[in-house]
Computed example of a mutant assay.
Amino acid sequence: MSLALCPVSFAAASEFVEQFHRHNKPPIGHKFSIGVENNGVLVGVAMIGRPVARMTDDGLTLEVNRTATDGTPNVNSMLYGAAWRAAKAMGYRRLITYTQHQESGASLRAAGWAVIAQRPSRPGWSRPSRPREDDGTSFVQRTLWEAS
Score class of each variant (00 low, 15 high):
Pro26Asn: 08
Pro27Asn: 13
Ile28Pro: 10
Gly29Arg: 11
Lys31Arg: 15
Lys31Ser: 11
Phe32Leu: 07
Ser33Leu: 08
Ser33Pro: 12
Ile34Pro: 12
Ile34Ala: 08
Ile34Phe: 10
Val36Gly: 14
Glu37Phe: 09
Glu37Leu: 15
Asn39Gln: 15
Gly40Tyr: 07
Gly40Lys: 11
Gly40Leu: 06
Val41Cys: 08
Val43Arg: 13
Gly44Cys: 13
Gly44Gln: 12
Gly44Asp: 14
Gly44Asn: 11
Val45Ile: 15
Val45Gly: 12
Ala46Asn: 06
Gly49Tyr: 08
Gly49Ile: 08
Val52Tyr: 13
Val52Thr: 11
Arg54Phe: 08
Arg54Lys: 05
Met55Gln: 10
Thr56Tyr: 13
Thr56Ala: 11
Asp57Gln: 13
Asp57Trp: 10
Asp57Leu: 05
Asp57Asn: 13
Asp57Ile: 04
Asp57Lys: 11
Asp58Ser: 05
Thr61Pro: 02
Thr61Met: 01
Leu62Phe: 09
Glu63Val: 03
Glu63Met: 01
Glu63Ile: 01
Glu63Cys: 03
Glu63His: 03
Asn65Met: 10
Asn65Trp: 07
Asn65Gln: 13
Arg66Tyr: 02
Thr67Glu: 00
Thr67Phe: 01
Thr67Pro: 02
Ala68Thr: 02
Thr69Cys: 02
Thr69Ile: 02
Asp70Glu: 06
Pro73Lys: 05
Val75Phe: 04
Asn76Met: 01
Asn76Pro: 00
Asn76Phe: 01
Asn76Trp: 01
Ser77Ile: 02
Leu79His: 06
Leu79Lys: 06
Leu79Asp: 04
Tyr80Lys: 01
Ala82Cys: 05
Ala83Pro: 02
Ala83Ile: 03
Trp84Arg: 11
Trp84Lys: 13
Arg85Asn: 03
Arg85Gln: 11
Ala87Cys: 09
Ala87Arg: 08
Lys88Arg: 14
